[in-house]
Structure formats: C-alpha cells, structure tokens
Design a protein around this nucleic acid. Structure first.
Length: 422
RNA sequence: GGUGGCGUGUCCGAGCGGCCGAAGGAGCGCGCCUCGAAAGCGCGUGUUGGGGAAACUCAACCGUGGGUUCAAAUCCCACCGCCACCGCCA
C-alpha cells in the first residue's frame, strides 16, 4: 500500500509509476476521490458523535421527569449517529479497497518495459564448453534418472504434471543444499526459521499476492487458508500488527519452507523436468529494516545470493528486472540467472526484491524511530530454491559417463565427492 | 472432539452500564538527595486520526465483528486466540 498522504501530494508521480508498470493510472484518481469522500464522512460522523457524547453526559446528570424528556430526544440523535457511522464505514472500505489496487512506486532506476526489457548487470563465471570436454551434455531429467535422483514419471502418476520425487542422492542433495544455505545464513547473522505454509487471508493480502498474482495461489476454500508460494509470506506476516524497536533493526530471517504454485498461464512452458513445478522447497531471506537503509540492504541480499551460486561453481548473470515484471510489491528487483547448458541460456535461480514500506503498510508493521512511529521497509531474496539449483548443479557438473561432481562447498554436507550411476 | 476458565496500556493487574482512556503496582524518563550509585521522595509516562503557532481540543481504540441502550471495557450474540483437564493422535 502506498501512503495515502503521499498520493494526495504527488498524484502525478504515482500515475507515472502505474504507467511504467503497464497498469491503469486512472486508479489514482479513483483513490483520491474515495479518500476525499472518506474524510468527509469521518468529519460528519465525528461531529455527530461529539454532540451525542455531550448529550449523554447531560442525561446522566439529569433526574426524574427532566431525564425522561431528554431520553426521548436522544433517540433521533442516536439514529443519526448510527447512519453516519455506516456511511463512514462504507467510505472507509471503498477507499481501502481502491488503495490496495495500486502497486508499489517504481524505483526510478529500474528499467522500463516488459519481461524482455531487463538489463544485464554482470556475468560471473564462464559457461563450460562441452565440445572441449568431448561430449554432449545430458539434461537434468536424463541425469536424474541415471543417478536415481529425480523421478518425474512417478510424480506425474501420483500427483499429476509438474510434480516429482527427489530420490536417493536427489533427496540427499536437497538436504545438503538446505544445510549449507542455513548454516551460511546463520553465519551472516540471519535467524533461521521454519514457517507455516498455510496462511490466512490477511497474511496473503498483506504481502501483495492476492492482486495480479492471485491466480498462482493455491487456496483451500473450505478452510479459508492459502498455501504459500514462498516463505516470504509467513516471514513478512511474522511481525504483522507489531511496532518494532528501531534500535533492533535490521531484523534478518532465513526461512525454510515448502512452496506451492499453481503456475497458471504457463501451459506448455518448461513442461520437461523440474524447472517449473507446483511444489518445491526453498530457503528465503527476509529483512525488516529502516526505510533509509533499504537500498543498501538490497545490495547485501544480492551479494549473499551471488555468494551462494558462486559457492556451487555455477556460471550466472545478474539482471535488473524491468518495471512490467516486478510484481506489485517490489520497487526494484534483481534476478540471478544460472547457466543451463542443455538450454544454452540463463535461467532464474534466485530473485531479490526491495518492497520499501509497501508490505509493511498493508501488514501494519511499524518501527519506533525516536519519537515517531513509521512503517519499516521489507526486502526478500532467495538463498536457494531447491529444484532449480539441482538442475544447475547436475547439468553444469556432469561428466561424460553421466556421473556428477559435487561442488566442494557441499561435500562436507553430503559426504561424497561424486554422484555415481545407479 | 468434549468440559471449564480467560483475553484490559510496555508488563502485572483492578474495573463488570454514565463521574473510565481506564485504579494500583512494576518498568521507563526527569528532578531532589549522594563524592557517585542503590534505596527513598516528588513529578511525568499509550496509540491513531482531525483542528490549532502553541497551551490545548475533538473523535476512535479495553482480542475481532455485530447487537441492545440516550450512553458499553462493563450486558447479549458470533468468531478468533490463550490456559487447564479429558479423549484421540504424528
């Protein structure tokens, strides 16, 4: 949510931001109109209520006949107050609903455009030249089968398309990745967390996933729960309705959870393998910090992401995601994309967003800063999303015979240096 | 799933129709005392929104949402959460 005061004072900036995202700028004017109506309704209600408060006190003080007479006249006042209260509540709801439709303000340095208009910020490492090694790389599905690591057929049999089993060394690899991720996060000062994956509507709404992203959210309608698509949701909502001590910021959490995604509108995209699946595990970084520190913190999170991928010895690049592809909460987003040999391209493995105060306002998370109380900034970033990292590791570190070398950083966690054929 | 109890300010805890934004205590802040500190004493100490240069003032907030009433922390209903005991269970 954008601060309504800010919208009032800078409507043109907000309109421009909406346009930059390819969203409707006229919502801004609807928001302003609704806000005006809301404020008028409040003034009206408060005036009546003040009158009634004075009246009620006089009744309390009166005795006998005088009191009985007063009681009669109080009834119509009471009805007026009630009506004004109803109007106030309606105007408030309307204004709230409209304000929630607005996406976060755009960082002016974010590239403008759609999914394809990202800017490449840097390349790290060099894609391996398999012709030098004298063999054609196998894709992760094939390698997964040879190593007994991934079973997509049985995943489909049991749960349908985009489901899979991690088996044997595949399962071990997940545990190693998670352990490596959590232990390095703890070293960096993060508080490790295991979060709920079912959340109630306010948590989902507050993090901004029920807007344009709603079609990708699994819902348990019978029980009024949503399945989270990322632990960003329960981590952000962890401090919902709280006032944090400014001295204790930044608060950094590393959450491990399963993630569920409907992947609506991706029919025919990445249907092979485990690049795009309905369920996977992920370690997510989430930070609450002072608004003025958010940009620097965003860079820190990006650095932790780069460190992780580098530790896996995977070549990757960093992109500055374009305005139309940010999601409603982010003011700016950087993705790290790993080189996938059999696709001959870079694919997103991690992503970090600066949500400024957008989520904090929706979730009512504030900080004490000296005398004043104001919303905090929130940021999130992937430390490791398991399936995509497994894809990158298997494909990049494979040998001609189908065995796969284990990256040095993972060896202590796996107790092996190579995945052998089964 | 059953039964009983409970949700009040930073915390503990009283209030159970009007004089209650709310006693008392702890904590915290300021001052006195002291070489300094503790103890002691005095004063102060919630949030949000509106008006005002300010003093100040108006409205809302006692788990959440409804209802009754001229008037609700207080009565009624529903929901949520917590605690205890019983049953069941990873």
């Amino acid at each position: 949510m954008i601060d309504i005061k800010y919208i009032r004072e800078n409507p043109e900036t907000v309109r421009a931001s909406q346009r930059g995202r390819g969203e409707d700028p006229s919502i801004v004017d609807q928001v302003l109109a609704a806000d005006e109506a809301r404020r008028n309704a409040i003034v009206e209600f408060e005036a009546l209520r003040a009158e009634q408060n004075i009246f009620s006190k006089s009744v309390g003080a009166a005795k006998g006949d005088e009191r009985a007479a007063l009681l009669e006249s109080g009834k119509s006042l009471s009805a007026d107050v009630k009506a004004a209260d109803t109007r106030r509540a309606e105007a408030d709801t309307k204004s709230q609903e409209l304000t929630l439709l607005l996406s976060n303000l755009l960082d002016p340095s974010a590239p403008i455009g759609g999914e394809a208009d990202f800017v490449v910020l840097e390349h790290v490492g060099t894609p391996r030249d398999f012709s030098q090694d004298g063999f054609k790389p196998k894709d992760h599905v094939e390698l997964g089968k040879l190593l007994g690591a991934i079973d997509t057929e049985r995943g489909a049999k049991v749960s349908g398309a985009r489901f899979y089993y991690l088996t044997g060394v595949g399962a071990l690899l997940e545990f190693a990745l998670v352990n490596y991720a959590i232990s390095s996060a703890v070293k960096a000062g993060f508080i490790p967390m295991i979060t709920p994956v079912l959340v109630k509507p306010p948590a989902m709404e507050g993090t901004g996933f029920l807007g344009q992203a709603a079609e990708n959210v699994f819902a348990l309608e019978k029980d009024d729960f949503y399945l989270v698509g990322t632990s960003e949701v329960p981590l952000a909502a962890f401090h919902m309705d709280e006032i944090l001590d400014g001295e204790k910021l930044p608060l950094r959490y590393a959450g491990y959870s399963t993630c569920f995604r409907r992947e609506a509108g991706t029919y025919g995209k990445d249907t092979r393998g485990i690049i795009r699946v309905h369920q996977f595990d992920k370690v997510e970084m989430f930070v609450f910090c002072k608004p003025e520190d958010a940009v620097a913190e965003h860079q820190r999170i990006l650095q932790w992401e780069k460190d992780f991928i580098s530790a896996m010895d995977i070549p990757f690049r960093v992109i500055d995601v374009a305005s139309g592809d940010l999601g409603s909460s982010a003011t700016r987003k950087f993705d790290c994309e790993a080189w996938i040999p059999t696709q001959g391209t870079y694919r997103e493995v991690t992503s970090t967003s600066n949500c400024t105060e957008f989520q904090a306002r929706r979730l009512n998370i504030r900080m004490k800063d000296g005398q004043s109380t104001k919303p905090v900034a929130t940021l999130n970033g992937t430390l490791v999303a398991i399936p995509r990292m497994i894809v990158a590791i298997l494909e990049n570190h494979q040998n001609a015979d189908g065995t796969v070398n284990v990256p040095a950083s993972l060896r202590p966690f796996l107790g092996m240096t190579r995945f052998e054929l089964v």
